[in-house]
Design a protein around this nucleic acid. Structure first.
Lengths: 388, 388
DNA sequence: TTGTATGCGTTATCAC
DNA sequence: GTGATAACGCATACAA
């Protein structure tokens, strides 16, 4: 029990916070404040087993203030080269590792861009990541990747986490399920740059990077038509995905342009899973009056079709033309080769990354849904070249 | 120009810091300190255009202290249900988003696991990521992915960034170039959990998750031998990769076991690029006395071999058996099908993730290089089945 | 050129 | 049940 240094009373003393690592007390009797150097417990500093050395440690060791250390570490001007060197040496000696968390907190920016992708199953998103990663690292940004796993709930959770972690910008490609967009509109509201790519939507005011799905689909179908196919089916993706809708439109437009009637029983709109592809494929191939060509919304589906055709003894491309979308690696190697649409995946990544950096630098206003449309390329292989 | 409230002089006033958000001044004439509520500029708070609402804002609005708000937000006990609800409502109304940075700083943990992979070119790492991601998100952890791009320098930079961002643990697969390991030993020194996978090394005391490369290679070569191939070449990877060395050993062991002499001109050790694969493949196929089978260190190389064989009119599998490693998606579709070794990629990811979580929870000591070895599976396809 | 003091947004300790 | 206030580690405006 301690007594008051002023009125010498005992039992009237209570703690009153800390001052410079010393316990501060107040005497209730005489209202006198005083401190006592906390002897047995040097409060925090160096307390925890795993104390990470901080700039304060360096400052103490060198005998300067923490601000000087901070300046030295950041190569600010106006600093004595000798102190500076001493600080740098001490930092190395103490194995100093800057704490990015503290830095970010005080700067309220993280130099980190977030990216949310729906899946890692195909080459598409890994490639986009590679492209974005390259641009971002060149500019000194980190890239944090999350995966929504085609689940709306996970996507929302991911955006929340990104927000909480105060990323400087978000690149996102939506899930198949995503039909509501509040979780994205938050970014707009808070002025955090946002760029959508590939799986985009019209309900959020943010730049979008896409490919010319409509044109690509149009060209793919046109290619089939020019190769003599007449009754072309379309195995499409879920209609809440813009890309599916665009490809569907492209299909219909091409059919119309060349005067081919679209038989609705040959047009399917569904999910993208492999299982579904098999089911729809079977349906199409088992039709009494089966199509002589199929334009599939992606390569996985197209490949399923080709495998089933083989099982059923239907010859590709003579009895059945097939065109896919995306140019998966296996498409070059299967059967007679799968004709498909190649997407500039790396370029998509680079473009989205450049755009968001620009938004950050320019503090550019959210554009009213501006779109950048990258060009695809039709890769013609055996599956669509009928031997006449 | 303001005058001194005490001596009423003007022009003797200078700023002297802030006190409770008020500008503090001192009169140089009479040495009197005083403050003036900064009217036009309420200092910080709400100053920045993009002020994020904080718990303090909530506290003020509700009329309680920030500690109460903090407790309410975290569902602590001992809080009046009404105040609690009021706080929650206000939080929603003000669109409060917790600042993870501040949270992390004070807790000095981030709930984030870092992962560094050398490349995104093959399916391997994306799959590992999927596995790890699943386990980590289930346990409430975030996963931050970085890519070293097969560059040692980038790898070192990445580990530094991870360190700076105070991740709670690191999962890493090394680059082909990595021959020194100080950047990893730092983790050990600082007690940050570290797990190596796939591309591991013996120079750092950390758990490793690998597959049975030796056995797998042994079985692959054994399979070729049992299918009647005699002079089996090995197109190996760079020897500083442990996986390459193990596969090489497995190859040699199998050859030895079955009394096949290893002809050193049929054994190549090199880098993994596609270009190199073509060069080495050409060398092997152009040999005067060319091998009748090739065991390649990965599928990309094996596929290059198959393509070149086709170009040269060498029939696979009759004139040349080929076995790869990894089971890339295209391997199932090429030519007669590529026999290969399937790695449990998803499981690798899950295992590394589980392990690092365990290390975090148990504060487990760094094990002395303990290893977990997952099983591979030989996928037999046409490329190794000679028609006798 | 260097030091002082304050703030970034939270949590946690302790007094009440 | 609630309120002060000290950290967390760093940057920086001002003062010196």
């Amino acid at each position: 029990m301690i007594g008051c240094p002023k009125c010498a009373q005992v039992g009237t003393i209570m703690k009153a916070g800390y001052v410079r690592n010393k316990q501060r007390y107040v005497c209730k009797a005489c209202n006198y404040f005083f401190t006592i150097a906390s002897t047995e417990e040097p409060h925090k500093r160096q307390k925890s087993r795993r104390h990470q050395t901080t700039i304060i440690d360096i400052a103490k060791s060198v005998g300067v203030s923490n601000s000087t250390v901070s300046r030295a570490l950041h190569g600010h001007a106006d600093i004595n080269p000798e102190t500076r060197q001493a600080i740098l040496d001490m930092a190395a000696q103490l194995d100093y590792q800057p704490n990015q968390l503290a830095y970010n907190l005080v700067k309220s920016r993280t130099n980190t861009i977030g990216m949310i992708v729906p899946e890692f199953h195909n080459r598409f998103f890994p490639n986009v990541i590679m492209g974005a990663h390259q641009v971002l690292t060149e500019q000194g940004y980190n890239l944090t990747i999350m995966q929504s796993n085609e689940s709306f709930a996970v996507e929302v959770a991911n955006t929340k986490a990104m927000l909480a972690n105060r990323i400087d910008g978000l690149l996102i490609s939506l899930t198949q399920e995503t039909n509501s967009f509040e979780h994205l509109q938050v970014f707009e509201k808070r002025g955090i740059p946002l760029v959508l790519f590939n799986r985009v939507c019209d309900d959020v005011h943010a730049p979008k990077v896409v490919v010319n799905d409509f044109e690509a689909a149009f060209m793919a179908v046109e290619h089939l038509i020019k190769n003599g196919y007449e009754r072309i089916a379309h195995l499409g993706g879920p209609l809440n995905l813009l890309v599916s809708r665009e490809r569907m439109k492209g299909y219909r437009a091409a059919m119309e342009k060349y005067g081919k009637p679209v038989e609705e029983e040959l047009v399917i709109q569904g999910m993208l899973s492999q299982q579904k592809a098999r089911i729809y494929g079977k349906y199409l191939l088992d039709l009494e009056n089966r199509p002589d060509a199929i334009f599939a919304v992606n390569d996985s589906a197209a490949i399923e079709i080709m495998l089933m055709a083989k099982e059923k003894g239907i010859r590709v491309p003579d009895e059945l033309g097939v065109v896919g979308f995306s140019d998966n690696p296996e498409s070059a190697y299967i059967g007679p080769g799968l004709t498909t649409v190649r997407q500039p995946t790396i370029e998509i990544g680079k473009t989205t990354a450049r755009w968001i950096l620009q938004m950050i630098d320019d503090e550019e206003e959210f554009s009213d849904g501006e779109e950048r449309i990258l060009k695809t390329e039709l890769i013609v292989r055996g599956s669509s070249l009928r031997h006449r």
